[in-house]
Design a protein around this nucleic acid. Structure first.
Lengths: 197, 197
DNA sequence: TAAATTTGCTAACGAACGTTAGGTTGTGTA
DNA sequence: TACACAACCTAACGTTCGTTAGCAAATTTA
């Protein structure tokens, strides 16, 4: 059914639609992207999209929850090895950065467009996000207990760390001078040891 | 014309509209907020709003550029005194946090909704933002030259610092346990000296 | 008291929106 | 060769959108 001789991954039509939609959602936002915009980017009519998806929100839902899965999977892998909190935090940061840089468009949707999900998806999503942040809080808490870290409030620390990381998708380009690994290392260095010489 | 016995600032009708709109823009986004939503929040009809403003975009424009002014004014005041880069960065961070916490709703609009401005406002806004970031880059550059800071890339450092700060508007509440000053101090401490004990 | 201004209303406009119904075409499978 | 199905079409639906026109009432100013 699918025959290709290029190196590119073979996408089903539905995946193509999702990918194109994700790019538009990042550039213009979910609400400001019309189905006619999406159709135009795909080179077809708006009505034709409904042969492949049920609704506009279905696209948003799939992108948001797929990315949530990716962040959790990466974090699971990062936390699979034991070690001091400092190292675990470095690994968690590196995992987060890897997912962010691997797909900046889906990341942007994941970070900013989820709020247009209707209930109960909206609540489900927020619950997942909180679970994810809790994993980071747990690392920070352990680091404080073991005397590795010195922060006034672990929730505050986690929000600051994640917000420092979550800006990457706005400027990262694969052809840039820093690789995702280098970005993660620099961020870990800044967040753990600070700017100070 | 305006007589009031309360402590609240007296707002013109236009300012009331802007304030209400700003709250909605933060909660639902500019595009997802209709003029009828705004009218409903004000207790009037949508058409009545046009006695006070020219268009929906005028509101967005005013909020975005007013906040830009506030950020620049605060940074001007913070940089009016000389000193080592470390201290100047601390002051600049404190100024930025003050503006963010003083008006979290307008800050959210400033940070996220500006992209819905049409040309040439869109370009003007981006130019202002870049000018603002350049002021921070200058501080970092000096800090590196004087040996106060040790970072691989000043642009990278500034983006990381600002993105760490710009998340505040999502969780800050005036009745919370940290004052804006304490938040600024904790953030300066984290960014300058890191998490490490 | 008269004039000007502010603030709001109802009714309606044309455009854009997400989506559905029903039909056509081409392609891989039985 | 017949059939199923994926992919896309045209046409249209009911709704919502930002905005305008024209008017009425209240309030402030002269």
């Amino acid at each position: 059914m699918f025959v290709t001789y290029s190196m590119e991954a073979v996408l089903t039509r539905k995946e193509q639609i999702e990918k194109t939609a994700t790019a538009l959602f990042k550039r213009k936002g979910y609400t400001a992207t019309s189905m006619r915009d999406l159709a135009n980017a795909l080179g077809i009519e708006a009505a034709s999209i409904y042969s492949h998806i049920r609704s506009k929100e279905e696209i948003l839902q799939r992108v948001c929850f797929k990315m949530a899965d990716e962040f959790f999977d990466a974090l699971d892998a990062a936390e699979s090895m034991a070690g001091p909190a400092t190292v675990r935090l470095q690994r968690a940061i590196a995992a987060h950065v890897q997912v962010l840089t691997q797909n900046t468009e889906a990341s942007a949707v994941f970070l900013h467009e989820w709020r247009h999900l209707s209930e109960p998806l909206h609540s489900n999503f927020l619950a997942l996000r909180d679970k994810y942040e809790a994993r980071f809080r747990e690392i920070i808490r352990e680091g404080i207990q073991r005397g590795e870290f010195s922060v006034p409030d672990e929730k505050f620390a986690v929000l600051t760390i994640l917000s420092a990381l979550n800006w990457i998708h706005t400027w990262y380009k694969p052809e840039g001078k820093m690789t995702p690994t280098e970005i993660a290392e620099n961020l870990s260095e800044m967040l753990l040891n600070g700017l100070r010489n």
